[in-house]
């Protein structure tokens, strides 16, 4: 079963890597130094793009394409709000779309039709806005968001992610693994609080997360894609998970449940960022 999942994951990653190559790597749509939150960061839900800081930076077209939609104002004609006051969609070759949300409404270049890489599309939200301008990469053929990091020029990053805590959760009771050496036998969810520092210094999401129990990989998620089917939000291209089950209410990552049998159990959590910097925490506990 786990081999099948790993194989499916590998195929999905390969497919997305192929897409990245065929999509002719995008340019950063804003100053990469203002990249605040990455794909997967809990921002009242799983962030499906990259959020930039404010300070009135320019938002640029990530690639050549054609603007298919631009809206500014508080809402669409049917009343649906436009969070951030603006929305732009640009169609690119190979069925790729880039979507820009939350640009300052009075700055949006809605007159553009054909867009060249680097064209100014608008300015990011003014300082003080609750949410900065957000950039999304969307594969219209597969109808899923792609982690923009896969499509962008790589950033220099030598800082590994941080694992704040790993807890076991059963029926609402939590046990932090760094504060306890023994738990009762049973089926547990793992609640993982991990982040990777973004260029702007915020707690952003990691790219790859693995859980090993007694040296055996029990779970691996790669922050590569997010999609929806029949009204349900799903995450990741390989071992897909429902967003509701993956993100706990406080933003921690929830995996499992895993059955822990009596005896000594070694639990390892390994987290990597997109530049392959890795952090691993190992806990040894007694299951009674």
């Amino acid at each position: 079963m786990s081999r099948t999942i790993v194989r499916a994951g590998a195929i999905a990653i390969a497919a997305i890597a192929l897409l990245a190559v065929s999509a002719l790597a995008f340019e950063w749509p804003a100053d990469a130094g203002k990249f605040r939150y990455g794909f997967g960061t809990p921002r009242d839900g799983f962030l499906r793009g990259i959020e930039f800081g404010s300070n009135d930076g320019l938002a640029l077209a990530a690639d050549d394409g054609e603007m298919t939609f631009s809206a500014v104002g508080a809402s669409l004609p049917g009343g649906y709000p436009l969070p951030g006051g603006s929305l732009i969609a640009v169609a690119h070759p190979a069925d790729m779309m880039t979507i820009y949300a939350g640009l300052r409404p009075d700055s949006v270049s809605s007159y553009l039709k054909n867009v060249r890489k680097g064209d100014i599309l608008g300015r990011s939200s003014s300082a003080g806005a609750s949410r900065g301008a957000t950039f999304y990469a969307f594969d219209a053929r597969e109808r899923r968001f792609i982690n923009p990091l896969i499509l962008m020029p790589t950033l220099i990053d030598d800082k590994p992610p941080v694992i704040r805590s790993v807890s076991l959760s059963m029926e609402g009771a939590e046990t932090r693994l760094d504060q306890s050496k023994a738990v009762r036998q049973g089926s547990y969810y793992f609640l993982i609080d991990a982040y990777d520092s973004s260029p702007a210094g915020e707690a952003s999401s990691p790219f790859d997360l693995r859980v090993l129990i007694d040296g055996s990989e029990r779970e691996r998620v790669v922050y590569d894609a997010a999609w929806a089917s029949a009204g349900k939000a799903n995450l990741f291209g390989g071992a897909s998970r429902g967003e509701d089950s993956y993100l706990a209410g406080d933003g921690r990552i929830r995996l499992g449940p895993y059955s822990l049998s009596r005896g000594r159990v070694v639990i390892s959590v390994a987290v990597s960022d997109y530049a392959s910097n890795k952090r691993e925490q190992t806990y040894s506990i007694t299951v009674q």
Binding site: F69, L76, A89, Y136, F138
Partner: peptide, 8 residues
């Protein structure tokens, strides 16, 4: 949940 942003 829709697969991408709503335009209408």
């Amino acid at each position: 949940a829709f697969p991408c942003q709503l335009s209408a």
